[in-house]
């Protein structure tokens, strides 16, 4: 089973995704993709760690090459988040491009009992982009759409509440 969760900044998408994965029976794995570049990233990571603590997640920090990641089979996996993974694959020295991000997610999906991916709605603030920003947005949008087509369930989170776009919330 595959669930895609999308939302804007501060929409409550992470909290919703965690609750969802927590409600599933079985062991839980959290794949964290944010690199601790600076103080703000570290605070963000810390905030998410605090949110997850006590919820039974085994955390794997992995910034690129999810296809090369060995996770135990049949786990309920929460991947957070797709935007960071794609940025890492596009811009990190060891990154191998947007397609590697998609392949990585699909590799995790094959091993997981249930995969939940958190991604970002960053597409309704204008259209006037260029260079790296434009390339990043195009890549993220293409992968969002590809994963949404593959997913059993797609929900956009609005002020913490799911607006179900496809399937049903497991």
């Amino acid at each position: 089973m595959f669930t895609l969760i999308i939302g804007g900044a501060g929409s409550g998408k992470s909290a919703f995704a965690e609750r969802l994965v927590q409600s599933l029976p079985g062991d839980r794995v959290y794949i964290a993709t944010m690199q601790p570049f600076d103080e703000e990233c570290r605070r963000r990571i810390e905030r998410h760690r605090a949110m997850r603590s006590g919820k039974g997640f085994a955390t794997l920090e992995r910034y690129t090459d999810l296809a090369g990641l060995t996770i135990p089979e049949k786990r309920n996996v929460l991947l957070e988040d797709l935007s960071n993974l794609i940025a890492n694959e596009l811009y990190s020295p060891d990154g191998r491009g947007g397609y590697a991000a998609l392949q990585g997610v699909e590799a995790v999906l094959r091993r997981a009992a249930h995969l939940t991916v958190v991604t970002n709605e960053v597409f309704s603030g204008g259209t006037d982009y260029e260079g790296d920003t434009l390339a990043f947005l195009r890549t993220l949008a293409r992968i969002n759409n590809t994963l949404a087509a593959e997913a059993d369930t797609v929900a956009e989170i609005v002020c913490g509440i799911p607006n179900v776009l496809k399937g049903e919330i497991p």
């Binding site: 900044a9 501060g10 929409s11 409550g12 970002n120 960053v122 204008g126 982009y129 002020c159």
Partner: peptide
Amino acid sequence: IGGGVVPIDPEQRARREAAGRLSC
């Protein structure tokens, strides 16, 4: 106000997130 590209300016970034969390 949280549905656009993440702003480069840290204050604008924080403002968007705070607005989203208030809505939650």
